[in-house]
Design a binder for these strands. Structure first.
Lengths: 332, 332
DNA sequence: AATATCTGTGAAAGAGTTTACAATACTTCT
DNA sequence: AGAAGTATTGTAAACTCTTTCACAGATATT
C-alpha cells in the first residue's frame, strides 16, 4: 500500500537525476547502454507507471479523446453508438488514449479543456457545433463530409458506391419508378444519401417523380408516414422504395403491409445501414451495409495522428456492400 | 488567442496571492466580502476556468469515472449501453466529472490511474474483475448484487417484484406449467432472474418441470434453441414460457411459430427488459420493464458520492413494471 | 592543443492546493 | 489603561510529478 513509484524513486536507486530517467523512459537514446539498462530495470522493479496527471500538466495534453454526441440521439433500435465506441476505444487504447463521451448539453470549458480532440458524429448539413469547434480551434475528425464547413479530416462510408449498386440492381430487375423515404434532411448522412440517390437516378435516366417525401423522422413511425405519403402522392406508384435507414425501411414495409400490399411482390424495399434486425424481419431487408466499427477505428486513428502531428491520409472512404435480401424482386 | 487565465493572473489583478484566489474559488469563506467579490469578478472577467490537469496532479484525482465493460458485449439489438451511458454521463457532468469507456482488454495501469472509480456492468456470478478491483482498492459501484463478492454498493432493478407481477398475472390467467428460456447463467442478471423465478414458482406451488433450459446465449438464436429444447423435453408442454431477456423471447416466439404453434393462443411468452423492439414485433412481447437510464443516473450518483466521501444510501433498488402485451393470454 | 563526441545534470516550468504562520484589529478582564 | 487573549484576513513556501533544454565535465579524436 505504499505510494506509487515516481521517476525520483528510480533516479535514487540508479543514482542519476530524474531528468535522466525521464529522458531514457521516453526513448531518448543518447545515454550509455548501462544507464539505460539500469533505469529500465529499476522501473520494472518498482512497477513504475508514469503519472499521467503530471504529464498532462506539463504537456498540456490529456490523452483523452471525446466522442461528441449532439443532443438528439439516433433511434434506439440502432446500435450505432455501441459499435462506434468499440472501434474508437480499441484504437485509442492502443495509443494510450482514453475515450470519453461528451454530450452537447454537457459541454463547457471545464470539460473541453480535458479533451485533446473530438470525434464528431450526427453532423448536420449546416452544423453549429462544427463551426464552433473550428472557430475554437479544437482538433476534430468528422464522421461526415461536412460540405458546408469545408472539412478535410473525415471518415465516411462510400455511400455513392453503395447506392449505385443498389439502384443498378433494382434497374436490372426492371424497376423504373423508385421512390425515396426521407429521414431528417438536416442531418448530413440523410442529405448525402438522398442527394446521391437523386443524382444516380438522374444519370441513369430513371423516371423521377415527386415520390420522395418523409416526415423528417428517422424511426419506424417516420418510415410509415413516408411510405403513406409516397403511395398517396404519386400518380404512378413506384415499384420500389429506398429508405434513408433500415429503421425507416422497417416502417415502410409495415405501412405497405398494413394497406394490403406485399413486399417485395408489389413494392420492393431497400434500406441503408444493415442494422442487426434487418436480416431477421419479414421479409428480410435488402440494404447497403457499412462498417460502423471500422468507421470508429479509422476515426480514432486519424484523430490521434492529427493530435500527434503525424501525417495521415485524408479523407478516408470505407467500402460498403449492397446486401440482397428478400425485400426486393422484379416488379409485377 | 492568448494563453488561458490562471489563478496567478487573477491574483495579480486583485492584488492578493494565488493562495487566496485558490481558497476563495474553492468556497473557503474566511475572507473578507470585498476580497471575495473582487476575486470572483476578476475570475469572470478573465473567463477563468481551472486547469484540471494541475488540479488532478495535486489532488491525485482525475474527475473521470469509467464504465467498465467486459469483453463480451450484450446483444447488439439491445441499446443497453446507450441508455446506461446517457444516464451516467448526465449525472457525471452535473458534478464536473467525465465518463470514459473502459473495455476489459484495454485496462492497464496507465489507464487505471486516470480513473477515479468505475461503474461495473455485465457482472458475473463469480466475477474475476470484481475481485480484482476489490483487491486493488479501486472504488466502484456495481450494476449487479454480486452476491459472491459480498457487494454493498450496487444499483439494481427490482427483479423479484417484476417477476412476481408477471407470474401472478400468468397464474390468474390460468397458467400452471411455466417454462423458462435460460440465457448465459454465468452472468448475474441471468442467474438472478432465473433463481428468483424458481423461488416464486415454488412458493406459489406451480408445477415445476424440467422445462428450464437454454443454450446459454442471450440472442435470438439462443431463444430459438431454448424454446426447442423446452418443447421437446417436457412431457407435459408448458402453456407459458418466460425468457431471460426480450431478445431471447423474440427467439422463443420465432421458434414456436416455426413449428406451427401460435403465440399466445398455444403458448404465452414473457420477456424481460422492455427492449425497444418488443412493442413492435408480432405479437408484441409482454415484458418486465426496467429503466436502464435511471440505473445509470443512480450508479453515477452513488459512485461520485463514494469518491467524495459523502454519505449515500445503499443499495439502491429501482422499481420495475410488468407490461402486458399481446404475447400472453389464457391457456387454451 | 584544439575540437568533437558522449553522458549526464540543474533548474525552471507547468497550475493549482494546503498548512502553518504572520499581522492586524478587536475584545475582555483586571 | 494595560495586558492578554481571540478573531479576522491574508501570506509564504512547500508540494504534486514530469518534461525540457541549455549547459557541464569527461573522454576521444585529429
Amino acid at each position: 500500500m505504499s505510494r506509487k513509484a515516481t521517476i525520483k524513486d528510480i533516479a535514487k536507486i540508479v543514482g542519476v537525476t530524474p531528468a535522466t530517467v525521464s529522458n531514457v523512459l521516453n526513448g531518448n537514446n543518447r545515454f550509455s547502454e548501462d544507464t539505460k539498462k539500469r533505469i529500465l530495470a529499476a522501473a520494472k522493479q518498482l512497477n513504475y507507471t508514469p503519472n499521467m496527471f503530471a504529464r498532462a500538466l506539463v504537456k498540456n495534453r490529456s490523452y483523452t479523446i471525446g466522442l461528441f454526441i449532439p443532443a438528439s440521439p439516433r433511434a434506439f433500435l440502432d446500435p450505432y453508438f455501441s459499435e462506434l465506441l468499440r472501434g474508437l476505444t480499441e484504437i485509442a487504447l492502443e495509443h494510450g488514449y482514453v475515450v470519453s463521451i461528451i454530450y452537447a448539453d454537457g459541454l463547457n470549458e471545464t470539460v473541453r479543456n480535458r479533451i485533446d480532440g473530438l470525434v464528431l458524429t450526427e453532423v448536420k448539413v449546416k452544423d453549429e457545433y462544427v463551426s464552433f469547434f473550428q472557430r475554437a480551434n479544437v482538433p476534430f475528425v468528422s464522421l461526415a463530409r461536412g460540405a458546408e464547413n469545408e472539412l478535410e479530416d473525415y471518415v465516411v462510408s462510400d455511400t455513392r458506391r453503395g447506392l449505385e449498386e443498389a439502384i443498378k440492381y433494382l434497374a436490372r430487375l426492371g424497376h423504373r419508378r423508385i421512390g425515396y423515404a426521407l429521414g431528417p434532411l438536416a442531418y448530413e448522412y440523410v442529405y448525402e444519401r438522398y442527394s446521391i440517390f437523386r443524382d444516380i437516378q438522374r444519370k441513369m435516366g430513371l423516371i423521377c417523380e415527386a415520390t420522395d417525401v418523409g416526415t423528417g423522422e428517422n424511426s419506424r413511425q417516420g418510415g410509415r408516414m413516408a411510405a403513406r405519403r409516397i403511395m398517396r402522392a404519386a400518380s404512378e406508384k413506384p415499384t420500389a422504395i429506398l429508405a434513408s435507414t433500415d429503421v425507416m425501411a422497417l416502417g415502410v414495409i409495415e405501412y405497405l403491409q398494413s394497406i394490403g400490399m406485399s413486399v417485395p411482390e408489389d413494392v420492393s424495399v431497400v434500406g441503408f445501414d444493415d442494422a442487426p434486425f434487418s436480416r431477421y424481419v419479414t421479409p428480410p431487408i435488402a440494404t447497403v451495409r457499412h462498417d460502423i466499427y471500422q468507421l470508429g477505428r479509422h476515426a480514432a486513428s486519424m484523430l490521434i495522428s492529427k493530435l500527434e502531428g503525424r501525417d495521415y491520409t485524408k479523407p478516408i472512404i470505407l467500402p460498403v456492400k449492397f446486401i440482397v435480401r428478400g425485400s426486393i424482386s422484379s416488379p409485377r
